[in-house]
Design a protein around this nucleic acid. Structure first.
Length: 700
DNA sequence: GCTCCTTGGGTTTTT
DNA sequence: CCCAAGGAGC
């Protein structure tokens, strides 16, 4: 509908500064928008889209690529606000991975996959695959699977194949990865599975080798926009190049100073060298910051000014007044830190009733830091949500149910079959699994085919044969229901009944845990129900939906009602709040030990620079008030440790912030201390009587 | 084959 | 401290 497009908001550019206007008015050809934090980059992207639509460009010929599905949803919403929901819906707004999924799904024939069947493996599935491979090659030592996976992932994103990749000498993880890589890739192919990296790299290789496919997609997508371009890797750059084709209508938006995903293969030279990759590119810098108070920006600029990395060298220019002083709270330990921040939230929201909880965030380096904060917020009755942490899709009961569905849809998906072959327990233990597996290998069968032939396997015991029969029956019935186009949620319900999932969960999880886990099962069934209402339940449709779930559900399905947000600094990118607490500003977290420890993967200055940028990202989330907190003591692995301030904090001139010590607070803390003292006295008494017992742990 | 216990080893970020 | 793997006992 054009009523939106012709609206004043979309066509009046007087509210934009000259650089923003230049970016919005840009027509064809490559452009790099270097957008500092809070400089209005989303605004520029969405306004440009609205302008192009107003100029007659079909929304369906445009694609905007974002970094997360959540960011995509938000961008689509903002576009809808400018141009109307109809046009917004026609546009492609998605992540690289979702795009890969769409393209591979619709080009299944070109890929040579029969009936479009492939599965998407998440990290847990990939880990399970590697665990099996390590077992099969008798790797001996207990390797860190995540480390192997990380190396394979980096190699794949750099277009190394199992054959071409050269491990670094004297790096035992490179060496084991060299062994695992070809087997891993072969295993995924035989399971008809793609991992997240494949979604991009396989798309690239398909577009490279099939001119017809390439041309088809280049005709489809005439305008391409990429957000958070500093976080793209080599494979994604290649995908951009292939899609952009000869039109080269590529607008990328990003900030080299916010590049924080090198550990995942992101290559900062993509943005630094954009003008070489796309000759004749226009470069626009957005340096005026509309988000943060001048006090916050002074801190942000100070953090970057000590940076030694290669940069475009932007400086954020404040447009807003000085605002409240930035404060540093030096706390005794994490519990004090948490109760201090709760106290401060209560004080601030009371003093300013317009400051609602959804305008407040607590940011930390690692998910484990959320726990004491959550505890303190809970005690104080402050509503909050944790972004990240244990994801819905990763919960065991959800994965188990999905594994059954996947096994029914595609029995060659061995990881799924393995996962539920003996769940709930039906007499097929490690030994029987080995026998099934070697039977399959010897005859070049899939594991599923071996299960079907269980009765013919002499080595297998009676209980195991019976278990295989039961499993085969459950899977077969499930498949038949799907073949008859039974709504998928009904299939899932019948499945839970047949395997006795409810009873098993009840038996395995005490009290409250059962309710929570069963609720997860019900939410999954509900999710399927909503899908059923929208479309058919044929095999293809359900399969498509399940593999999309792998991408979508690895993120938050959370609703952001008026609650305080807790999230990692990585997860905070692109978001903003009026009041922000950055906690744990200590050596060991910022930078993280893992990046400074010489024992870990060759710790380099580059890694530390990335940690500095991460701190910069965290700081620039604050609009009005920024608190930096750190602890003097903290226990790690049960051992108490003294903590020192982050080097990045020490780099900030002291006159830019106020500092205060927080050791103990009046109120509840005194009570807690008194209780603590009482229990110590009691324990001493007990020691004297000889009735000492291990003190039960406090947490439920 | 299953469950419970001991032991040893490692600390992050996520599509 | 927390998890996973391996061993003992049922």
């Amino acid at each position: 509908m054009s009523s939106h497009v012709s609206s004043k908001e979309a066509q009046d550019f007087s509210d934009l500064n000259p650089s923003q206007r230049e970016a919005v008015m840009h027509g064809e050809g490559p452009m790099l928008v270097l957008a500092g934090a809070g400089s209005g980059k989303t605004r520029v992207v969405t306004r440009r889209i609205a302008r192009l639509i107003a100029a007659g460009v079909a929304p369906s010929s445009m694609m905007a690529v974002t970094f997360t599905n959540k960011a995509a949803a938000e961008m689509r919403e903002r576009i809808a606000h400018l141009v109307g929901p109809r046009s917004a819906k026609e546009m492609r707004v998605m992540t690289f991975h979702s795009f890969g999924l769409e393209l591979l799904g619709s080009e299944a024939r070109a890929l040579g996959l029969r009936d479009g069947g492939f599965t998407v493996y998440d990290q847990a599935d990939c880990s399970a695959t590697i665990r099996e491979i390590l077992r099969s090659i008798d790797a001996g030592k207990r390797f860190d699977i995540a480390a192997i996976l990380a190396r394979i992932s980096l190699a794949k994103n750099a277009f190394e194949t199992a054959e071409s990749w050269v491990p670094r000498p004297h790096d035992e993880y490179d060496e084991i990865a060299r062994e695992v890589f070809p087997r891993y890739q072969a295993a995924l192919r035989s399971f008809h599975a793609f991992d997240f990296d494949d979604l991009v790299t396989e798309t690239v290789s398909l577009l490279r080798r099939r001119e017809d496919v390439r041309t088809r997609w280049q005709r489809k997508i005439r305008y391409l926009m990429v957000d958070e371009y500093q976080d793209t890797n080599a494979a994604q750059l290649e995908l951009v190049r292939l899609i952009a084709g000869s039109w080269r209508n590529v607008v990328v938006v990003g900030d080299d100073d916010q590049s924080i995903y090198a550990w995942r293969g992101a290559d900062i030279t993509n943005i630094l060298n954009f003008s070489e990759h796309f000759q004749g590119a226009r470069v626009v810098k957005l340096e005026e910051n509309y988000r943060s108070s001048a006090s916050v920006l002074a801190i942000a600029n100070a953090v970057l000014s000590s940076s030694r990395g290669k940069r475009f060298g932007k400086v954020l220019k404040p447009t807003r007044p000085e605002g409240a002083r930035v404060e540093v709270a030096v706390c005794l330990d994490p519990e004090i830190e948490a109760s201090f921040l709760v106290d401060e939230i209560q004080r601030a929201t009371t003093a300013d009733p317009t400051l609602t909880h959804d305008e407040i965030a607590v940011l930390y380096r690692s998910n484990s830091q959320a726990e004491p904060v959550e505890q303190a917020l809970k005690e104080a009755g402050i509503p909050h949500r944790i972004i990240g942490g244990q994801k819905f899709y990763e919960r065991k009961e959800v994965k188990d149910l999905l594994a059954y569905l996947r096994a029914a849809l595609a029995p060659e998906d061995e990881i799924s079959v393995r996962r539920v072959l003996n769940y709930p327990a039906r007499g097929i233990g490690e030994a029987s699994l080995q026998k099934l597996s070697s039977y399959a290998v010897a005859r070049d069968l899939t594991l599923w085919q071996a299960v079907e032939r269980a009765i013919d396997i002499d080595a297998l015991g009676g209980a195991a044969v019976e278990g295989c029969r039961q499993f085969e029956q459950v899977v077969t019935v499930t498949r038949q229901m799907l073949e008859r186009n039974t709504p998928s949620h009904q299939v899932a319900e019948e499945l839970t009944r047949r395997i006795g999932l409810k009873e098993d969960l009840m038996a395995a999880s005490p009290g409250e845990a059962f309710a929570r886990r069963w609720r997860n099962v019900e939410s999954l069934i509900n999710l399927l129900k909503r899908r059923d209402e929208r479309g058919p339940s044929d095999l293809q449709a359900v399969n498509d939906y399940l593999r999309m779930l792998t991408l979508q559900l690895s993120e938050e399905e959370e609703d952001a009602r008026r609650v305080v947000t807790l999230c990692t600094m990585h997860g905070a990118k692109g978001l903003e709040w009026r009041l922000v607490f950055v906690i744990g500003v200590e050596e060991g977290y910022l930078p993280h030990t893992r990046t400074t420890d010489p024992k870990a993967t060759a710790a380099s200055d580059q890694d530390i620079e990335e940690e500095r940028r991460l701190f910069y990202v965290a700081v620039t989330r604050a609009r009005e008030k920024l608190w930096l907190t750190r602890c003097k003591h903290r226990s790690s692995r049960g051992k108490p440790m003294n903590r020192t301030p982050s080097r990045f904090l020490l780099d900030i001139p002291a006159e830019l912030y106020d500092q205060r010590e927080v050791s103990i607070r009046p109120g509840p803390d005194y009570q807690r201390m008194a209780q603590g003292a009482a229990s110590v006295l009691k324990a001493l008494d007990a020691l004297k009587d000889g009735t000492a017992r291990p003190v039960p742990r406090r947490r439920p």
